[in-house]
Design a binder for these strands. Structure first.
Length: 387
DNA sequence: TGTGCCGGGCG
DNA sequence: CGCCCGGCACA
């Protein structure tokens, strides 16, 4: 039992440094395309995006994010338009803007052989900064994110774990260019999007913060899976997460006392106490993803997929942010507000009907029963993922 | 067939 | 009470 946790420690860290390189390219591309601006610009944007997906939302609306120091030029983000221009052929319009945001993130996730590592110094920095900007609540450790890159080309849903890989894929397959990265002018960037995953508590995935995060990638894609019912989404937010910072093991102690929203809504969030967990994402296009994998996949290596809406779930631990409060869900509140009201539900007279959301058992799996909330352990109504 | 959890038993 | 499980209602 106890040992289980281990495995996850190191799962995610990316091994390659390619990312760095990628970034360069990307950024460079951005710069070119967009309007230009000084070379320096690149760095800034990056940070922002990375931050959590959540906050910066360009799609949204106004422009939230703060330019902070260098933004001199200003709108780098707005360049969605440019993207279109650049590729007349078949771009994926919808996401263009969204997708880009996250260039830098990659460094975070990954699989690493080594230690669990919450540590990449560099990483931390970035994160930290971004976090600050975006969210009021800094998360404790964020390292458990993993980043994947998804090809947005019309019928291609390829997902790769490195930016370089996806760029190459696009370049060769879709753009028909043979040269290496050198040649690229950055156009590839418009055809893929970055996806971040956290490990955290799964369920919250959705829940996480309502405020901003959604922007990330979710919008465009067609919903592959049916899962979430309207209500569900919102609801999920409220539930809490398992542990948090202070309590590493989810053990039985105070289960619900707090939980936190996890970070990204897009998929999952990050890890929990120990390290990270793997994440799986259902692929939208191909979708097959049949199994969403509920559990933890050991490494995410082989295949991943992505799904925007559905909550896939991964395992993990828990954690992270301290306050569970219900405060955050503004949006959700409206949505759900209603339902919370009376138990009108259908059948419910005597029985609850059963929550639709995933409960501890499903999320953590029988094997990690110790991570379940006490109620679940006792076969009572789940308190952690309430509906 | 698997899941959520009520109702109830045991220490 | 805390803890657990039989067994039912669902999906």
């Amino acid at each position: 039992m106890k040992k289980v946790l281990h495995p996850f420690h190191h799962l995610l860290v990316k091994q390659r440094s390619e990312e760095e390189v990628d970034m360069d390219k990307v950024t460079a591309a951005m710069v070119l395309t967009s309007l230009s601006t000084s070379p320096l610009v690149r760095s800034p944007p990056v940070k922002v995006s990375e931050g959590l997906s959540g906050s910066w939302k360009d799609n949204g609306s106004a422009g939230p994010f703060t330019p902070s120091s260098n933004s001199s030029s200003g709108g780098y983000w707005s360049w969605s338009a440019p993207s279109d221009q650049s590729n007349p052929s078949t771009p994926s319009p919808p996401l263009s803007a969204d997708s880009f945001k996250p260039f830098r993130v990659p460094s975070l996730g990954g699989v690493g052989p080594g230690p669990a590592g919450p540590e990449d110094p560099s990483l931390d920095e970035q994160d930290g900064s971004s976090l600050l900007f975006d969210e009021p609540i800094p998360r404790k450790r964020k390292n458990s994110m993993k980043v994947m890159f998804k090809c947005l080309w019309k019928n291609c849903g390829k997902v790769l774990s490195t930016a370089a890989g996806i760029q190459r894929h696009i370049r060769t397959i879709h753009l028909g260019r043979s040269c290496d990265s050198d040649c690229s002018d950055g156009e590839e960037d418009f055809y893929y999007t970055e996806i971040k995953l956290n490990t955290d508590s799964v369920a919250d995935g959705l829940s996480s913060l309502s405020p901003v995060s959604p922007s990330v990638l979710s919008p465009p894609p067609p919903p592959p899976s049916p899962l979430p019912s309207l209500n569900q989404l919102p609801e999920s937010q409220r539930p809490l997460q398992p542990s948090d910072t202070k309590e590493p093991h989810a053990g039985g102690t105070t289960p619900l006392s707090r939980s936190a929203p996890s970070a990204l809504y897009l998929i999952h969030t990050d890890h929990a106490y120990q390290a990270t967990a793997p994440v799986s994402i259902p692929s939208s296009s191909s979708n097959s993803a049949g199994s969403a994998s509920t559990s933890f996949t050991p490494t995410n290596s082989s295949s991943f997929s992505i799904s925007w809406q559905s909550p896939p779930v991964t395992f993990t631990g828990n954690t992270v942010s301290p306050s569970k409060s219900q405060g955050f869900g503004e949006q959700r509140s409206q949505t759900i507000a209603v339902l919370s009201s009376p138990p009108r539900a259908t059948t419910a007279l005597s029985r609850k009907v059963r929550g639709e959301g995933k409960k501890c058992r499903k999320v953590y799996g029988m094997e990690n029963r110790d991570m379940w909330c006490t109620a679940c352990r006792w076969k009572k109504a789940c308190q952690r993922f309430t509906d």
